[in-house]
Simulated scan of single mutants.
Amino acid sequence: MAKELFNRYVWLIDTLQRYGRLTRREIDGLWQRSEYSDGKPMARRTFMNYRQAIQEMFDVNIECDASTYEYYIEDPDALQGNGARVWALNTLAVSNMLNESQELRNRIVLENIPSGQKFLRIVFEAMKENRVLILSYRSFRRVTSSHTLAAPYFVKLFRQRWYVIAKDFTDRKIKTYALDRVASLELSSRTFVYPDSFSPIDYFRDCFGITHDDMPAQEVVLRVPALQANYLRTLPLHESQEELDRNEHGSTFHYRLKITPDFEQEVYALGYWQAEVLSPQTLRDAVAERLSRSLACYGTAGLSCQERGK
């Protein structure tokens, strides 16, 4: 029953997100077509109870315009972005839609997240209780696994992989561990103090992807063709993205971020779309050199890059 109520709250939030403003009658019409109503209308008292529960549980306030009697989400921008609450609500909303569309299940293709889901619950429990993790981890750069004690500060999802950012007790440094590379994970009896001054958002501020670096942020300017610009407008590379100019041939985008290996890799991939780094010159030279080496892989028939490098 609790799960069903939870799903109904998410349904109401998602419905108001999609339609913007709705009267009680309009909400009721959509409600009766949903899987949760059994074809019955939603009683006014039930609706008011849902509003209150949504406010208390999700901190989402549903207001009523007294002049039109329309209901709306007071601060829709709060349901945008990449916070945990937004991610959870979006995930649940999609789950509800899938449940309502069982007859289409063979026509819906989803992506798998091969990232050690079995370890997430342990990590969450460790964060909740401030317990130290006993971690066995095998990096792609190592042949054998490393063993360490780590204090989990927060988790991050990026490119279909879950990561736990934790303080390593061996060298006292904050490190990033991909859960799909964890060999074993268990709770220890040892506890740690999560620093009040630490902010996961600030930790990755000015960063792209999952790589953190103490280097200063730099101003980056990219010039991309018109087609690729459409993709960047709908899915920005970084929250600092700003479109400086635009014409029929392409657009110029400005960013302020740290030039980490993750970002270099992304810019390198954009090179396929003829994206050009205008500044800084160091990044422009690095991408040009890497593209040149990639092109050289096709210059000698019958030999791979690895073979020519021997």
Rank of each mutant, 00 (worst) to 15 (best):
M1G: 15
A2F: 11
F6L: 08
W11H: 05
L12F: 06
L12K: 04
L12M: 11
L30R: 12
L30S: 02
R33Q: 10
E35I: 15
E35L: 14
S37T: 01
G39C: 00
K40Y: 08
F47H: 01
Y50H: 14
R51G: 03
I54T: 03
N61P: 00
E63M: 03
Y69L: 11
A78S: 15
N82W: 13
R85A: 13
T91G: 14
M97D: 06
L98Q: 12
E100G: 12
S101A: 13
E103V: 13
L104D: 07
V109E: 05
E111K: 13
P114A: 08
F119I: 02
M127Q: 00
R131D: 00
L133I: 01
R138H: 04
H147D: 09
V155W: 05
Q160L: 11
Q160C: 11
D168A: 02
I174R: 01
V182H: 04
E186R: 09
Y194P: 01
F198K: 05
C207D: 07
C207H: 14
M215K: 14
P216D: 11
P216G: 12
V224C: 12
V224R: 07
L227S: 13
N230A: 09
E239H: 12
E248A: 13
H254L: 15
R256E: 07
K258W: 07
P261E: 03
P261G: 07
D262N: 01
Q265K: 10
L278A: 08
S279H: 06
A288H: 14
E289A: 15
R293Y: 02
C297Y: 15
G299S: 14
G299K: 12
Q306F: 13
G309E: 11
